[in-house]
């Protein structure tokens, strides 16, 4: 269902409720269409302190201060919630704009997942590079640097498009300031986190960091997670990975994230560990 159809339904519902703003004709010109407001208004009736609620809503994207009818959500909040869900569902299926990758000069590698359906339903397919990319990387990848950065679409192409242009330079700068060497970053299409193990083994780096689009939430489809690991091998387990999530303008901003991630990477190199082992050593 597209936006116009939703707006159409909304206007019909409101027409049935006797709303005077609604169009009388089922067909209409574009500029007569009912504009469904995305604006999220305070729904609490007669609150003790409306300013408190307004302030609360300004510091968290959580859907609070929305009020209720009986025990249920008010119609406008319910519809906004469903619209956000629909948008998030659509976002999963979109590819990253290759123009952006070209502008950043990122070589495009591909996993064994050749299409979205395979990617979604078969985890292993997204965990290894396909043969062509493997061959390319063996020949062209920068070997033996301390750090390799890979950018992965994961479950949100939007997240990559929105953040990478700021995040990559911020990480590069952070690492440079600490005198840490890093290889030219790569983009991996239809990638799961574990593809980093495959890439790290080929380029023989100490630390590999994946910047991967998180599954889209309702509040934001723009969030990136950074998964980092020190020298992954066959015995690597999930708890060996260090993860920083919620990198986006409304969370940890890309610029702040650059500095934060390079601090963590420096610690990984210092302690030669990542994940829970790193956490333990840092706390000692």
């Amino acid at each position: 269902m597209n936006k116009n159809q939703i707006e159409d339904i909304v206007s019909k519902v409101l027409a049935n409720l006797g709303n005077t703003q609604s169009p009388k004709q089922p067909t209409q010109r574009e500029d007569d269409a009912f504009h469904f407001s995305k604006e999220d208004v305070i729904g609490v009736e007669n609150p003790k302190n409306k300013q408190t609620i307004a302030h609360a809503r300004s510091i968290t994207p959580a859907r609070i201060g929305i009020g209720h009818t009986g025990t249920r959500m008010l119609t406008s909040h319910y519809l906004n919630f469903r619209i956000d869900h629909a948008a998030a569902q659509d976002a999963v299926l979109k590819d990253v704009d290759e123009e952006i990758l070209k502008q950043l000069g990122l070589p495009i590698l591909q996993t064994k997942a050749e299409d979205m359906q395979t990617y979604l339903m078969n985890l292993d397919s997204g965990r290894r590079l396909n043969e062509e990319s493997e061959t390319w990387l063996k020949k062209n990848g920068e070997k033996g640097k301390q750090v390799q950065v890979i950018v992965c679409d994961g479950l949100s192409s939007t997240a990559v498009e929105e953040n990478i242009a700021d995040l990559l330079p911020a990480i590069n700068q952070g690492l440079s300031l600490k005198g840490i060497t890093f290889a030219k970053p790569l983009f991996v299409k239809n990638a799961r986190v574990w593809v980093q193990d495959h890439v790290a083994q080929i380029v023989n780096c100490d630390v590999i960091i994946s910047l991967i689009g998180e599954r889209p939430g309702l509040a934001s489809a723009k969030s990136i997670s950074a998964y980092m690991i020190y020298k992954p091998n066959e015995k690597t387990v999930e708890a060996d990975r260090t993860v920083i999530s919620n990198i986006h303008e409304g969370g940890l901003s890309p610029v702040e994230a650059g500095a934060h991630l390079s601090d963590i990477i420096a610690d990984m190199l210092k302690y030669q560990a990542s994940g829970v082992h790193l956490a333990k050593q840092r706390n000692q």
Binding site: T71, R215, G217
Partner: peptide, 21 residues
């Protein structure tokens, strides 16, 4: 969860409203 939308974990769970219901 506020309106069922977990803004940190990015998934939907039962809401305060559903709970009361």
């Amino acid at each position: 969860v506020p309106a069922g939308d977990d803004v940190m974990l990015n998934y939907q769970d039962t809401s305060f409203h559903d709970d009361a219901s």
